[in-house]
Design a protein around this nucleic acid. Structure first.
Ligand code: ZN
Ligand code: ZN
Ligand code: ZN
Ligand code: ZN
Lengths: 140, 140
DNA sequence: ATGGCATACGTTATAGCATTACGCAATCGA
DNA sequence: TCGATTGCGTAATGCTATAACGTATGCCAT
């Protein structure tokens, strides 16, 4: 399902590390996780991340300088993606909203701006962390 | 007009530096600009920036790790702010859109998320840089 | 097969961004 | 006067990302 035969060994290892994590990982955390697999330098991680981002399999969260595996590894080439990031448990919710895309599209047209990358990130508390009595579990 | 008697000397110097710049500045660039005013260490800049952000006079652009003076130094306490950042000339356009705010509000309500900070940044080419024949000048 | 090109890799060093930790000084209200 | 708060100055450190080098590999047109 999420197999990508095109991936090199390094790219596959980085993607696997991100896929197994419940929260976003920094490049240096990934490096540490992959030391046993022969990783020695940040560039090995960054190069793999670059490629994975190109392929749409990984996203960078600008506001926390960390990376997540795409939650919808199908093609969302044309969608604008948004993230809700919990500052307590670290969990991330990836979603898209046609309405937001349409509003931004209006602004872009009116101002003749040519966007190449759009970042939408909300930081705050997820439902579980905001109200622990609500039943959901809070990760380690 | 933009005077804030509450500001300390360091805060006022940082705000002035940002106000005179046409593009966002990194903390270390601000530090260099203010060496003649006695600034010696990054922390002097970061502490001033923290306070200025609290006051809503400065924004941090997450996607480029840089800071801008607020373009609308009146109160926009309740608005969600968005930025269009030109990757060529570096100029930034700050705006807000009630429609986007409303759409995000819907998602937040549906998911019981409690946002504390929202980041919306578009990178790309401004009208002048995308089509130089269009008349506008392209900054240094 | 051979040469040229493109892509990925490995390593070292360096650049750029941000915070921790400590102590001092000024301010303000109890 | 005391204690609390806030800001300041300095040094050290940590985290994030890229530059620059050379090597290896696969592919393809010659
Ligand atoms: Zn995705
Ligand atoms: Zn949470
Ligand atoms: Zn503003
Ligand atoms: Zn421009």
């Amino acid at each position: 399902m999420t197999a990508h035969p095109e991936l090199t060994r390094n790219q596959a290892l980085v993607l696997k590390a991100l896929g197994q994590a419940e929260i976003p990982l920094s490049a240096y955390t990934i490096l540490d996780l992959l030391r046993d697999d022969g990783f020695r330098a940040p560039l090995q991680v960054y190069r793999a991340l670059d490629k994975l981002q190109e392929l749409g399999l990984v996203h960078r969260l600008e506001s926390i300088s960390a990376f997540v595996a795409c939650a919808h590894p199908h093609c969302h080439a044309h969608e604008i993606i948004a993230f809700a990031i919990c500052r307590t448990c670290g969990r991330v919710n990836e979603f898209s909203d046609a309405g937001i895309e349409e509003r931004l599209g209006r602004w872009i047209e009116a101002h003749k701006f040519e966007p190449e990358k759009t970042t939408i990130e909300m930081s705050g508390l997820c439902a579980a962390c905001a109200d622990p009595s609500n039943g959901a579990s809070v990760g380690a």
